[in-house]
Design a binder for these strands. Structure first.
Lengths: 247, 247
DNA sequence: CGTTGTCTTGATTACGCTCAACTCAGGTGG
DNA sequence: CCACCTGAGTTGAGCGTAATCAAGACAACG
């Protein structure tokens, strides 16, 4: 994987400018690209956890099964994301991870992260910053799942996905592809598939969201954000400049 | 704050054995102890975020307000915890933090963490491990809040608190003090205060949990864990030995 | 043209919310 | 010492959102 193909470098560049050595370190994380099919599992709960994974292309999600048979999707991963950071402190996987679309992933062992810790304080900070941003995302969804209505949950999720996609893919304008079935949406939003359908109908009647198969159109972004009580401070792109801290 | 008073050292020692230099680094995080009263705020959403805080004694919680007027409590902090890790990548606070009881906190600036990154790879790993464990906790609660019944939520929360308290305070046996009002419990569990009351009555009828004011008794731990569908792999104490990774 | 899976719509049910009245313990002042 | 107040917790009645169950629509595919 060369430097300009690297999603990781692209991702990390958001946080600070990288030296040649740092870029080389990051590129080395992606030296084992593996093709992987939609629907296949990267790993399951209980598997040994000795590696991370960068998602080079395609979408993935992590999820947990409940005893009731329900499923809760925890996170959607987009290209450039690192999968499995949460399990750094554990010897076993806590979550299943499944590909949504075909894609390419690059495995690298936990100890590679320690090399980063050893060799570059700025990269260490960026890894930490990325982890803390992911955490912010999860926290925001916790609030939404715990307290908000189906309509708010749905609006919130769609707006969040819109922002995340725009961050990596500047050319998105009010329309994007969302390769998720209603069952998967239900598992994300903590709703039943039936109610997801109803909620989309409602949002469509209100003119907030139009959906045709897997294509989503959002005529009025602000209105959608308002409907989801979306507070975007947890996704802001004006990242705290990390070099300030080193001073 | 001397070495044997340090909650941080106690906390970090769970993850790896510490050299003298590393202990000194950690002690330096706690050089500014501040007394703080129950009910007072450490900070609020929007405040500048340039510091972390170690909680030396007392309990605290972080929370968010919703437009509806509801509140969601995100995390309960116990002595030894670091507060504010999540905001490392942000310039503003994303959450309010409030003391539950009187306590002592120690502020230290973000850049102190960078010194740790610079000076000790093991400590860096431990910080990372702690962050990833906190994240696992939040994720677990996300699943619970999104999918489980009031009875399960309550049982799950109580069992989790029991385990966390036992981890730091080995002498706990089926009974502990839980200094939370039902309103606060409601804000944690995503329920109304009224329903928290009903749920405790139910658990009490079932003989699973007895509560007298702020004292909680759990006659049968396994039964409570089962009622909360508690899977304790995310709290396991057999921490992945970090030095293995450095090899 | 039938089959399959996904989505939609309708009818019924249930869990937890809201509102309101009541209990109870602790604290305060006469 | 008692009367009163306050705040937390409990209990009851009615309601609403979303779940469940079931039937039907629709598209993709063989």
């Amino acid at each position: 994987m060369s430097e300009d193909q690297s999603c990781i470098i692209h991702h990390f560049s958001h946080y600070c400018s990288l030296t040649k050595e740092e870029k080389a370190l990051l590129v080395s994380l992606e030296e084992n690209p593996t093709d992987i099919k939609a629907g296949s599992l990267l790993w399951e709960v209980g598997d040994p956890a000795k590696e991370f994974c960068t998602l080079h292309s395609g979408w993935a999600y992590s999820y947990r099964h409940l005893e009731s048979g329900d499923r809760q999707i925890l996170e959607i991963y987009l290209p450039g994301d690192i999968i499995g950071l949460r399990e750094f402190a554990f010897s076993q996987r806590l979550e299943n991870v499944c590909m949504i679309t075909d894609g390419v992933v690059c495995h690298f062992p936990h100890k590679r992260l320690l090399e980063i810790f050893r060799q570059s304080v700025p990269l260490t900070s960026v890894v930490f910053a990325i982890a803390s941003r992911h955490q912010a995302l999860v926290t925001e969804r916790l609030v939404t799942l715990a307290r908000r209505s189906a309509r708010q949950k749905t609006a919130h999720f769609l707006y969040e996905m819109y922002l995340r996609l725009r961050q990596t893919n500047g050319d998105i304008d009010r329309q994007f592809r969302l390769p998720l079935s209603q069952e998967q949406l239900a598992d994300i939003l903590g709703l039943s598939p039936v109610h997801v359908s109803r909620t989309f109908s409602l949002l469509s009647e209100e003119g907030l969201v139009f959906r045709d198969r897997h294509n989503v159109t959002i005529p009025d972004l602000k209105a959608l954000a308002a409907a989801g009580e979306f507070d975007d401070c947890y996704l802001h792109d004006d990242v705290r400049p990390l070099f300030d801290l080193s001073a």
